[in-house]
Nucleic acid binder design. Structure first.
Lengths: 204, 204
DNA sequence: CGGGTGCTGTAACACGGTCTTCACATTGGG
DNA sequence: CCCAATGTGAAGACCGTGTTACAGCACCCG
């Protein structure tokens, strides 16, 4: 989860909490790294200076204000922030709030590989921005592959992890679904799923 | 600012903070006193018991969860609350959060999507300025969809969130209500509610 | 009190899509 | 070259959903 922090030298306590919360701090100068949330550290600053936080990030990016208890009243009349946390902040609380704000950005549910995108919230798939019509099982299998790319999975493993642990059926079922997936991915992308003879399949 | 508190005997610390924050606690039994926010005190309770908070207030009423730091992880996987506060809670922080949630409530008096408008204050719906006659359940379901458009909801999730957490009934009930909704929305708008096979329904 | 009316939940059925399986063709390795 | 493993196509079983009808209720009105 990528967040932008301002001012760039936050209190060491906030920096620690961000690490514990599992957040990656991005460089404001790096245009490519779009954050899912901005964190404004008001522990040592006055609010008026930092209203400009809105200008630092793309419109729609939620803003979390971190503030000392004594400065809370200052925020009451402001409306540029989307959530607040009182320092010293609990890392778990920070993570919960960041997650929630990121979900508001609704980018967290997006899985992607090359020009494939899977939106797990809407169950929609696109290839090069063109919608692809996948059936339920096709979608579940492809999602598993994208989430676990780079290693070989046996048919039995795929059956238990995608179809369900209690599933009892022929292993060839996997083959057929792989085939249909390759067909829907198209000619040039069909090698995304590699057959490893006598072992199983690998994605990516 | 009127708030509903559950359980009815909150910790004395929360009770004090509510007074200091300037909140009036309403009686759950009093139907006339509609609160602008519900406060769920999880300091001494487990979350699972109190998901029912959603059932205590009208749909759309925001819910503030008050939780001890040690129980924070419990809330991470839940989605029935709109904001949270870690106890012991600062009265000023409580006031700021309640204000924000109450404002959110007021802004939702008018919900709209395309040429559909829902007036949650009067329970009236219009399509292209033409009034539509919706039954109670139809209205509640449509309102949930409009408020949570853009993602898929399983039948079980819809039963929990629209019918109530303690509701136990067949999942097919949702199907029938979706059908009735589609019929009243009319031919050309019936695809607002998309069926996602083996998963559920998505609005918008 | 009794009948009517509208809302809600559930059961039953039909239809269409999807999954699974099978038979057969093709490939690849020893 | 042979055998095992995999690709391919089609057929049938199965599952999920749309649709309709109906029963139980609550409510209203005479």
């Amino acid at each position: 989860m990528r967040v932008l922090v301002t001012p760039e030298e936050p209190s060491s306590e906030l920096a620690d909490a961000l690490v514990l919360a599992g957040a990656d701090v991005v460089d404001p100068a790096d245009d490519g790294a779009s954050p899912v949330c901005a964190v404004v550290d008001l522990t040592n600053e006055v609010a008026s200076v930092l209203r400009r936080a809105r200008d630092l990030v793309a419109q729609g990016t939620p803003i979390l204000a971190v503030v000392g208890a004594e400065n809370l009243p200052l925020l009451e009349t402001e409306d540029w922030w989307d959530d607040l946390a009182v320092s010293p902040i609990n890392p778990v609380e920070l993570r919960v709030r960041l997650r929630r704000l990121a979900a508001q950005m609704e980018n967290e549910d997006l899985l992607s590989y090359d020009d494939l995108e899977l939106d797990t919230a809407t169950y929609q798939a696109t290839l090069a921005d063109e919608p692809v019509d996948l059936t339920y099982m096709e979608y579940e299998l492809l999602r598993f592959f994208v989430e676990h790319r780079g290693r070989v999975w046996s048919r039995e493993q795929l059956l238990s992890r995608v179809w369900g642990y209690e599933y009892f059926g022929g292993a060839r079922t996997v083959d057929v679904h792989v085939r249909r997936l390759r067909a829907k991915l198209g000619e040039e992308r069909s090698d995304w799923i590699t057959t490893v003879r006598s072992v199983g399949y690998r994605f990516g």
